[in-house]
Design a protein around this nucleic acid. Sequence first.
DNA 1: ACTATTTCCTGGATGC
DNA 2: TGCATCCAGGAAATAG
Length: 289
Amino acid sequence: MQILSAIAAEPEESTTAIPFMPELPEVETIARGLQRQVAGEVIESVWIGSKPEPLKSPARLIARTLEGARIAQVRRAGKHIVFDLEAKGAAAQWIVHLGMTGRMLVAQNQDEIAKHTHAIATLGSGRELRFVDPRRFGRLEVRTAQKFEAPGQEPLKVTLETFAQLFHGRKMPIKSALLNQKLLAGIGNIYADESLFRAGIRPRRLADRVTRAELHRLYDAVQQVLSEAIAAGGSSISDYVNAEGAEGLFQVQHRVYRREGEPCLVCGSKIRRTVIAGRSSHWCAKCQK
DNA sequence: ACTATTTCCTGGATGC
DNA sequence: TGCATCCAGGAAATAG
């Protein structure tokens, strides 16, 4: 609570809008919004742009799988949006990864086509699902064989026991381990930094050397951070799905992420930034050991 | 078997 | 004003 008031008192300097990054809470929010908006719809037709497409499955296969299929459910798995489909009695999945800049928008057919629109699925209602991704880090994929699940553990479902085991014997920085999707599915750079800050663990510490007590704190921190972000995003789901931008989707104040040089909200020390495994890592030297 | 590094991609910010 | 350069980062590919 004292932290919140500190934030409120902070004069808003250099309002460089923090770019929207779809990690677990954002994808969860988006998937819930899509579930509300398009579950039950039938995909009538599919358009996939030419050029180098951000696809993991051949364009033809995607189109053939989606066309005529009914969207039974939309859910999140790791950082993936999963459309569970029913097509002629057979199950299939349309899996969407947003990368850094990807968006899956629900649009009216008369709406202007945004730049960098790579795929459009026209629904029975006449509305359209549009995949837009300027940076092309996103990926579209379909699966028919097996039900898609993210490779790593779901951070909000994993037990403390299993969580702790993930890091055993890992000779990599704890930050890198948190980002490894094969271990935990859904944590990206923002929530890795925020979780480590709350747990009081420096990002460079080797995963193997983090004590059991610290792992317990980290486990709690990860769940707290993700839950709070989901709760914050939940209030503006429909805005996001319908709107062009992601403004207002995620308003949770970061305590360290992108706050290099600014005072730690707990102790006042300057937040530091170092590069770990090619990723910016933000931390407080006094609060994190 | 692991871990570390490079690559992809574009827009926005920064520098000269 | 304009152009070059850097940076953001998830995950696959490549290297060690």
